[in-house]
């Protein structure tokens, strides 16, 4: 049953031009920023892989917004009632939606991450040696960064199911991923390491642990991936619970 619902959701996702535009801009932005930051790296001591992946920080936002819209677009257009008439089992519907969107965002995220890495590596300036995938931690950083697109996208999908209105859900997403961290940084320094954007920048996209005098203790790459997965899972679980109980 979930297979045919997933087919339905795949047709819905791919038949919107906005899906392809958003994904194209996501890749282009991630690659462009990565190349720019990579070219401007002058210090041989910096993590060039991390710089090449700098574009992921704004890039995941687009994946998150697409996740939000994949859900809220159903409500703003009224399609949700047609969708639920076709698939009255609401938990199955959300699971299929998340599976389809998660896989698409994962593929696009990996493409964005790898292309950004190779493009930035090919354009390293100031006589620095380009990083290669064979170096310690590099392949892991590139792969996990690609996975972050999918996880932030699923976080957006879950928030969309909870909030149901596009603008409000995008607001919650941006606040949760980009704004709260600024406040947390002041109020509870130690917790900042658990904020999605710092996980992304300092745990997933780095080849070696980031240590600085003023920084919190950042999570390891795998622990960071686990936290992002947990955030997405919580949002989807609450969204699914509400979807099953609310009127459509």
């Amino acid at each position: 049953m979930i297979a045919r619902v997933a087919r339905m959701e795949w047709i819905k996702l791919r038949s919107l031009r906005s899906t392809w535009w958003t994904l194209a801009v996501t890749v282009a932005g991630t690659v462009g920023i990565g190349v720019a930051v990579g070219r401007n790296s002058r210090d041989a001591a910096v993590d060039l892989t991390n710089n090449a992946l700098a574009g992921v920080v704004p890039g995941v936002l687009l994946a998150g917004i697409l996740g939000v819209l994949t859900m809220t677009g159903e409500y703003s257009s009224g399609t949700i009632r047609v969708t639920l008439a076709a698939v009255p089992r609401r938990s199955v519907l959300l699971a299929a939606k998340a599976a389809v969107f998660g896989v698409v965002a994962l593929i696009v995220g990996e493409v964005a991450s790898f292309v950004a890495f190779f493009a930035a590596s090919a354009n390293v300036g100031h006589g620095l040696a380009a990083p290669t995938l064979g170096q310690p931690g590099v392949l892991r950083a590139v792969v996990l960064t690609g996975a972050a697109f999918s996880l932030i996208g699923l976080l957006g999908l879950g928030l969309g199911a909870i909030v149901r209105h596009s603008a409000a859900a995008v607001g919650v997403l941006v606040a949760g991923v980009y704004v709260v961290v600024q406040v947390i940084g002041f109020l509870a320094h130690g917790v900042a390491a658990y904020m999605p954007i710092l996980i992304l920048a300092n745990s997933l996209s780095t080849t070696r642990p980031v240590a600085c005098t003023d920084c919190p203790q950042f999570l390891s790459a795998w622990a960071g991936l686990g936290m992002l997965s947990l955030y997405a899972a919580i949002a989807l679980a609450i969204g699914g619970w509400l979807l099953a109980r609310r009127d459509a």
């Binding site: 045919r4 619902v5 087919r7 339905m8 959701e9 047709i11 819905k12 038949s15 919107l16 031009r17 906005s18 677009g73 159903e74 257009s77 009224g78 399609t79 009632r81 047609v82 969708t83 076709a86 698939v87």
Partner: peptide, 18 residues
């Protein structure tokens, strides 16, 4: 009750697949 960006055929094809 359909997405304004989707064609009629895609809308129906998705429902049929489901």
């Amino acid at each position: 009750a359909f997405h304004p960006g989707r064609s009629a055929r895609s809308h129906l094809t998705a429902m049929a697949a489901g």
